Amino acid sequence: MMSGETTVYTVLEVLIAIICCLGNAPVIWAVWSSCALREPTFCFMLSLAVADFLVGFVAVPFAVLVDGQVSTSFNVCLIISCVVIMLTMASVLSLLAIAVDRYLRVVIPLRYRKTVTERRSWLVVGSCWFFAFLLSSPPILGWNRQEGSPSRNSSINCRFIAVIPGSYMVYFNFFLCTLTPLLVMTVLYFYIFCKIKSNLHGKVRCGSASHIYYQKERNLAQSLVLVLLLFAIGWLPLHLMNCVAYFGNASVLPRMGFHVGILLSHSNSAVNPIVYAFKIPKIQEAFLRIWKSFFVCRDYSQTSQSNPTTEDNTGSQPNIVINK
């Protein structure tokens, strides 16, 4: 029987999962269906939105399962845990791809469109997911807690820390695969803002096309930095607790602390669509277009069906124009 704390944790996870799915599905639809959002940056944002959607649809249910709620074999528990890790890796690599794309737009603006094509962008997106799979596979390949555990076919109380070793989570997952990309992205965005500031204040004429270009780049970069900042706020507390548990004494950290850290990390996937909707004009326009085409046109169609126009009583034929 679940304790009160576990019940609250499970309910909150379910709410976060619903918000993740309902929030990211329109983003995926908007980017995929809009020709105006086929730019490389939005391809990478689509990848991030898919990862966030899968966090709600897959990772959150799996996270509840690996909290000791079910009994599985060692292999099944290991695969479930690695899927959760893979989605995190996909988010980090998508954020890195976005930062590199923004860097190239500022550094090589004249050659950018020839260098970063839509085809190459989708290849990068595929590479992000492929490397996310590779980076999450070491536990399956042997870097796990199998030693001293029951045989792989025997049933265990499935918990993340029962199959994934702290050494992998701290040295590989955090230091190498999360903290290093975050530092690289921080440096890239710092350089981007310095370059944009230099161009706006010294190298381009106010009101010119170049001035407008760099203003748009600055506004979009600010929104993407906010996404990066929210990712760091959401995931660093859990990683820091893993470090304390690995290098120090795990008993000093209550289980509730880990539950709060997990909820915070998953909630990151729920807030990203809010940033897209309120901070990025092109996605706002796509949302409005979808709303009008789906709801407004639907209401108009229903109104037309309920109030059909009367036919012309004179029996005259409609005017038909034939282009000769």
Rank of each mutant, 00 (worst) to 15 (best):
C206S: 07
P138G: 09
F174S: 13
L236C: 14
L188P: 10
N173L: 05
L220N: 12
V125H: 08
S265N: 05
Y191I: 11
V225I: 11
S155T: 15
S208C: 06
K195W: 03
R205Y: 06
L238Q: 14
F130V: 13
L229E: 07
A162H: 06
E217I: 05
L123S: 15
F247H: 09
L123D: 14
A209G: 04
S251D: 11
P181R: 00
N199P: 02
P139F: 00
Q146F: 03
A221K: 02
C158D: 09
S155E: 12
I161W: 02
F133H: 06
Y191C: 13
R255W: 04
S137L: 11
A132Q: 05
G142L: 03
L253V: 13
L230W: 04
L236I: 13
L220F: 04
W235V: 12
P237W: 00
S155C: 10
A250V: 05
G142K: 01
C194S: 14
C243N: 09
L123Y: 12
I164R: 02
G202V: 01
L229Y: 06
R145I: 02
N144F: 00
I156Q: 10
A221R: 03
M169P: 02
F130Y: 09
F190A: 15
G142R: 00
H259M: 15
C128T: 15
A245I: 02
L135T: 08
S198I: 00
A250K: 04
C177A: 11
L228Y: 07
P139D: 05
L238W: 00
C158G: 11
A221F: 04
Y168W: 10
F131D: 11
S210N: 11
H239C: 09
F258Y: 15
F231M: 12
K203V: 05
L179R: 03
L135C: 11
V170Y: 02
G234T: 03
W143L: 14
L264N: 15
Q146N: 04
M256G: 15
F133V: 12
Y213V: 06
